[in-house]
C-alpha cells in the first residue's frame, strides 16, 4: 500500500473543483484509493464520498492506494494536491 498525508491550505477547503479533479484522477487507476479524514475513510473515486467529508482549510488528510498501480496513483494525485490545494 502507498499513502501520503497533506495539510489543506486552500481557503475554501476541498470543494467542487479540486474535488472534481481528484475524483477524475483517481478514476484513472485500478487501485482502490481512499481519502481519510478525522477517522473517516471514503472512496476517492466517489465525488459524493469526498464531498461528504466536508474537508476545510487546515485539515489534515491522507490518501491511500492499494493495488497494481498504487505508486503511480499516489504520485499523480500528489500533483493535483499540490496545485494550490495543500502543502
Amino acid at each position: 500500500m502507498a499513502e501520503k498525508t497533506y495539510t489543506i491550505t486552500a481557503e475554501t477547503g476541498i470543494h467542487a473543483r479540486p474535488a472534481t479533479q481528484l475524483v477524475n484522477k483517481a478514476g484513472q487507476f485500478e487501485s482502490e484509493i481512499t481519502l481519510d479524514y478525522k477517522g473517516k475513510s471514503v472512496n476517492l473515486k466517489s465525488i459524493m464520498g469526498v464531498m461528504s467529508l466536508g474537508v476545510g482549510q487546515g485539515a489534515e488528510v491522507t490518501i491511500k492506494a492499494e493495488g497494481p498501480d498504487e505508486e503511480e496513483a499516489i504520485s499523480s494525485l500528489d500533483e493535483v494536491m499540490k496545485q494550490g490545494l495543500s502543502e
Binding site: A19, T20, S46, M48, G49
Partner: peptide, 16 residues
C-alpha cells in the same frame, strides 16, 4: 461549466 463536471461525476459515482 465546472458545475456540470461535478454533475457528471455524480452520474459516474461508484458509491451511488
Amino acid at each position: 461549466a465546472e458545475i456540470f463536471s461535478a454533475h457528471l461525476l455524480v452520474l459516474q459515482d461508484p458509491e451511488f
